[in-house]
C-alpha cells in the first residue's frame, strides 16, 4: 500500500457558508498503479492532487503515506516526505526560465545535497533516457511545449520518486505531443513508477489502470 485516504474533507468558508472542496474522499493506492482523476472544472481534481502531494492541507480525515500518518506529521516532516517520494508535473511545466535544461534537471538534486559527480551522472543518464542530450544547454523559451513538458517530467523523475503527480500534463500541448507524453507515462508506469494524473481527456484517461471520477468534491 503506497497511500491511503480515509474520509478526507476540505472546505473553505465563504460568506458565512461552508463550501466543500473535497467531501468524504476514500482512496487507496497500491504501488505500481496508474490512476486518472477525471471530472468537470471545479470538481476538486487539482485539490485532491495537491492534498495527496502534501502541498495543501485538509480539514478532516486521515491520510497515510507509506504507513506514515500524514495528518499528524509536522510541516517539516511532511515536506521531507514529499520531497523524498513525490515528483510533480505541471500543466504549464513550471521550468525556471533563467536556467538551462541541464540546470533545471539538476536543481532537485542540489536541494537533496547529492554529490557533484553523482549529480552529473544522474543528469547525463536522464538526458540520455529522455533523448534530450542535444537540448541540454538550451533555455526553456527555446523549446516547444512538448519538449518543455518532457523536461518537466524528466525533472520530476530525476530523484527517483515512488509517485508522480501530474496535473493535466498535456493540457497545453497539441494532440501529437500529448500522445507522446502519455506514452512516456505508460512506459514509466511499466517500469514500476506509480502515477496519478488529472486529466480532462477520456482518451488520456484510458492510459491509466483505474479512473476516479469527481463531482463537486465527491467521488462518484
Amino acid at each position: 500500500m503506497l497511500l491511503k485516504l480515509n474520509n478526507i474533507f476540505k472546505w473553505v468558508n465563504s460568506g458565512g457558508q461552508r463550501v466543500f472542496l473535497l467531501k468524504d474522499i476514500n482512496l487507496s493506492v497500491e504501488e505500481g498503479e496508474f490512476i486518472s482523476v477525471m471530472g468537470p472544472s471545479g470538481s476538486g481534481k487539482s485539490t485532491l492532487l495537491n492534498v495527496i502531494g502534501m502541498l495543501d492541507n485538509f480539514d478532516e480525515g486521515e491520510y497515510s503515506f507509506l504507513d506514515e500518518p500524514v495528518h499528524t506529521l509536522k510541516e517539516k516532516h511532511r515536506a521531507n516526505l514529499y520531497k523524498q517520494y513525490i515528483g510533480f508535473v505541471f500543466q504549464s511545466y513550471h521550468l525556471l526560465d533563467d536556467l538551462t535544461v541541464q540546470e533545471n534537471l539538476e536543481m532537485p538534486l542540489l536541494y537533496k545535497k547529492v554529490g557533484s559527480s553523482e549529480r552529473k551522472s544522474l543528469v547525463a543518464d536522464t538526458l540520455d533516457r529522455f533523448n534530450i542530450v542535444g537540448k541540454k544547454d538550451l533555455f526553456p523559451a527555446q523549446l516547444s511545449g512538448g519538449q518543455q513538458q518532457l523536461v518537466g517530467i524528466a525533472r520530476a523523475l530525476i530523484s527517483s520518486p515512488k509517485l508522480i503527480l501530474a496535473d493535466e500534463p498535456t493540457g497545453n500541448l497539441n494532440s501529437k505531443q500529448g500522445e507522446e507524453i502519455m506514452e512516456l507515462f505508460k512506459q514509466l508506469n511499466s517500469e514500476g513508477v506509480t502515477i496519478i494524473q488529472v486529466t480532462h481527456s477520456e482518451k488520456n484517461a484510458t492510459y491509466g489502470s483505474r479512473i476516479i471520477n469527481l463531482l463537486d468534491g465527491r467521488k462518484i
Binding site: A79, K83, D98, M107
Partner: peptide, 13 residues
C-alpha cells in the same frame, strides 16, 4: 514568487 514556489516544490529548503 513563481520561481520560489517551483523551487520549494522541488524540495528547496
Amino acid at each position: 514568487k513563481k520561481e520560489i514556489s517551483i523551487r520549494l516544490v522541488l524540495g528547496a529548503p
